[in-house]
Computed example of a mutant assay.
Amino acid sequence: MTDAARSARPPLRRADLRRMREALDAAPATILTVCTGNICRSPMAQVLLRASLSDAGVRVHSGGTHALVDHEMTEQAQQLAVTHGANATDSAAHRARLLTEALLNESDLILAMAREHRSHIVQMAPAVLHRTFTVREFARLAATLSDDEVRNGVAEAGSDAGARLQALARLVGRQRGMVPAQPDEDDVIDPYRRSQNTYDLSASQLVPAVAEVERVVRVALG
């Protein structure tokens, strides 16, 4: 755009600036879930969190480090998600997409399904380090915090939902080392192309973690 074109543009009115600020303030808190293909674990986490936080104004989406782009969730993953409370229509509508730096940067809390995904995320976007966890790691650390500790820990973030969710991530991150765990206890097993028993095991690891995420997110945003 030329300088003449810029100067010809009318200045923003005060009302326009107010509406822009209001739109930014109204932006929802955003959670991103990440796995490899984005057809089993991360979309299960996505649709479960969407269902459990549907009344909290939280945006939940997902991506895959090596996504099978445009593929649906596997049938087993859909069935398990719905069994554990996800919306059937939402589960059926999912289409896999590739994880990008833009998706990471716009997310206030990033929940990877395994340590390999957490490492990939941080290499792709180092700035999101302090808001990136595996979902089981986040749940394990969050469980050490009472509701009052969560409320007090995010209070300085003010009323902005995204800022409060990022403050929650920092608060939970400070709990590292408080609850020792074996490294593989922070991963959700990959069930892709494996038995129904493996799918069931994967869900048994994921569902309690999602419930703990819901608890502390609700408290932080309440």
Rank of each mutant, 00 (worst) to 15 (best):
R95E: 01
T134N: 07
T132C: 04
G63Y: 07
T83Q: 15
C40D: 00
D147L: 05
A143Y: 04
Q46A: 07
G63L: 07
H117A: 06
E106F: 07
E149Q: 15
T65C: 12
L103I: 04
E101D: 13
L111A: 01
H117T: 00
A56Y: 06
S119Y: 06
F138M: 02
A93N: 14
S119H: 14
T144M: 15
L98T: 14
V47F: 03
M124V: 08
V122F: 03
N38I: 11
N105C: 12
S107V: 09
R59S: 12
A86W: 08
S91Q: 02
V69E: 14
S119Q: 15
T74K: 05
S52K: 15
L111I: 07
D55N: 10
H117N: 09
Q78L: 12
L80H: 07
A127R: 14
E75W: 00
T132M: 08
A112G: 05
A112L: 06
S107F: 07
V150C: 01
T132W: 02
A93L: 11
S54V: 10
A92Q: 11
G63F: 07
R41F: 08
C40L: 06
L141F: 03
T74E: 00
S54H: 13
T89H: 11
H130E: 14
H117P: 08
C40P: 01
P43I: 06
S62M: 08
R41N: 09
H94A: 12
L103R: 09
T134C: 05
N152F: 05
A88G: 01
V122C: 08
D90A: 14
A125D: 03
I39T: 04
S62G: 07
Q79W: 05
N38G: 10
R115D: 12
V82R: 12
R115A: 13
H120L: 11
L145M: 07
L68I: 10
S62V: 04
R151P: 01
S107Y: 03
D148W: 01
V60C: 08
H66N: 12
N87C: 13
T65W: 00
P126F: 00
A114I: 02
Q79P: 00
G57D: 04
L99P: 07
Q79L: 12
S42K: 11
P43M: 05
R140Y: 01
V60T: 10
E72Y: 11
